[in-house]
Simulated assay, not measured.
Amino acid sequence: MRQTHDSNSPGAIADAGAAFRMASFYKEAARRAALAGEARPKGVKGPPLRHFLGELSVFAEPLRRLGRDFPIERTDEPRTVMLLPGFATHPVRMRYMAQQLERAGHKVKRWGLGFNLGPTEQNIILLERRLAALNKRYGRPVVLVGWSLGGLFARELARRHPDMVGKVITMGSPFSGSPRANNAWRLYHLVTGHPVEAPPIDIDLSAKPPVPTVALWSPRDGIVSARSSCGWPGERDREVALRCTHLGFAYSPEAIRAVLRELEAI
């Protein structure tokens, strides 16, 4: 015999709730898909396809790293460093860089938020607390090293709390020009649910923080436009060109040496 639920029974209410949640899910998925499907603004381009395909070299990195070691000098001026990962990446992707900076004698800390899934007012507040805790614990300004989207978080933290930040080092971070001058903005729209140029926080991407700010960038970057991550005078204090891929900023010996030089130059 077929069992039916009274419209006010717990079973019927549960079914109605599940149907509502499913409908809401599909509606939100459709909205995000529409965002991701928007046309790129006329005249705005990301890196060329050959550079984008070059990012696949990341899969060979574990093999290249076997037996690879490069000399690192111990510093006389250890810094406290917070590493901020790129979009959709976990802090573990920056572990190799952290290990090399620690070999030099620096104190390296994670950002404490797990995967970087885009900015919200809540995760900015959590980062502000993390920054304040590190500043108080070690009694010195913290150097923020941000990879890709992590660099935008770093710049915003320094803008809000310049007294707690000793320096900002961005690596392939799209802080200049159009936020869609990259090959990841569609994925960003799909994951975050908001347009890349309209984050749910008060932020001016190109405004230079009131602390020393250095932009590491690469003409071989296959994700972010070189012009966006290099910036213009007034948007950063200095820029340094490297020869790594976008994903390579996290493990390239050249990028690691560049960060170490910037830590020594404070």
Rank of each mutant, 00 (worst) to 15 (best):
M1F: 05
D6Y: 10
D6N: 13
P10N: 09
P10S: 09
A14I: 13
A23T: 12
S24F: 01
Y26T: 07
K27R: 13
A29C: 11
A30G: 07
R31P: 00
R32I: 06
A36I: 04
E38P: 00
K45P: 00
V58M: 03
V58P: 01
A60S: 12
A60T: 06
E61A: 11
E61P: 00
L63H: 01
R65L: 13
D69S: 14
F70T: 09
F70E: 13
E77W: 07
P78G: 12
R79I: 05
L83I: 08
L84T: 13
F87M: 07
A88L: 14
T89W: 00
V92E: 09
R93P: 00
R95P: 00
Q99K: 13
E102Q: 14
G105S: 08
K107R: 15
K107N: 12
K109D: 06
G114T: 07
N116I: 06
E121N: 07
Q122P: 00
N123I: 12
N123W: 00
I124H: 04
I125R: 14
R130T: 13
L131H: 07
L134Y: 09
N135V: 03
G139M: 10
V145Q: 06
V145P: 05
V145K: 01
G146S: 10
L152Q: 12
F153P: 03
F153W: 09
E156A: 03
L157K: 06
R160K: 15
R160A: 03
H161G: 02
P162Q: 09
D163N: 11
D163E: 15
M164W: 02
K167I: 02
M171F: 01
G172Q: 01
G172M: 00
S173W: 00
F175C: 08
S176P: 03
S176I: 07
A181S: 14
L190D: 07
T192N: 06
I201V: 15
D204R: 15
P212K: 08
V214I: 14
P219A: 08
P219N: 08
G222F: 00
G222L: 06
V224R: 02
V224F: 01
S225P: 00
A226I: 02
A226R: 12
S229E: 14
C230M: 15
G231S: 10
E235Q: 15
R236A: 14
S252I: 01
P253Y: 01
A255E: 04
A255N: 02
A255L: 04
I256S: 04
L260P: 08
L260C: 11
L263I: 06
L263W: 10
